[in-house]
Design a protein around this nucleic acid. Structure first.
Lengths: 143, 143
DNA sequence: GCACGAAATGAGAATGGTTCCTATTATCTC
DNA sequence: GAGATAATAGGAACCATTCTCATTTCGTGC
């Protein structure tokens, strides 16, 4: 966690943004989760941070590229660490309860994914910057 | 378009739901689009259908499995024809303007995707029901 | 063709996640 | 430690979406 905070602080500093107490709390809450979290989930674990500040912190951290935003099965936005701070991964999305958990592909699998992405985008005039692979179904507790 | 309306009408009838004028208009608007559309985009092309009715029709058609809901880059919900009414396809999502367009994979490519899905879900206790592959980048008009 | 009951509609109010506003407080620089 | 700037707290505002309920339309049996 130390290393993470240092990396983030540096990145924020490069943009003239501070890593304050509130932002550090939000960062830790998201970093220790095992999948993308909604604002209210985060707020639930952080009762010292008011909602308005939480949303502002989330926006700042997304803006700075520390968090990635994710719009999943339900209509609420979820936040997770950007990929330069974690491993590249994909998602198992539960169509019943909306929860999302992470899966990491092997190097070989990821190479296959990369080739597919190239093939799909190749035909259109589209500048690829990333991809998301989401697997839908029912999680262990909903099936 | 005739065949589509017939298919949908049959599916709705099987659930005791009518294909009314308003629903037919919504169906056509979504069916003729080249990618998922938001409620307000649809409303824009259908000024005889009030928003509340539009949302109700969308809900009915999603419920009946005629439309698929999609939560993309922005936080508004998008709707498109369910896959049994179209080809299975994937999405090119523009991170700049939020527009989404469809790409269809070849049979071989899709087989590769299927194997990846199995591999990713295999390790967890997760009952797969589908997958989505989203490619992010900048569309022709935003790059 | 007509009447009845069920389903669908329209209009506006209500809801809930998210953003904006403003005064106050914390932080950095000198 | 003072001044300037950034960040916070709290609440109001916003907007996509959902709900409510009175009215209308549709399909069925007569």
């Amino acid at each position: 966690m130390q290393q993470l905070e240092r990396d983030v602080k540096m990145r924020l500093a490069a943009r003239g943004v501070r890593l304050t107490r509130g932002r550090r709390l939000v960062l830790d809450a998201v970093a220790t989760a095992d999948g993308p979290r909604t604002a209210s989930e985060i707020h639930g674990t952080l009762d010292t941070v008011p909602l308005s500040s939480l949303y502002r912190s989330l926006a700042v951290l997304v803006e700075a590229g520390v968090f990635a935003q994710h719009h999943g099965a339900d209509e609420t936005t979820r936040y997770e660490l950007a990929e330069w701070l974690t491993e590249h991964h994909h998602h198992l999305v539960c169509v019943s309860c909306g929860s999302i958990s992470d899966v990491t592909a092997s190097e070989d699998q990821e190479a296959v994914v990369g080739r597919l992405v190239e093939a799909f985008a190749g035909s259109s005039d589209f500048a690829v910057s990333g991809h998301r692979f989401e697997i839908e179904g029912r999680c262990a507790s909903c099936r």
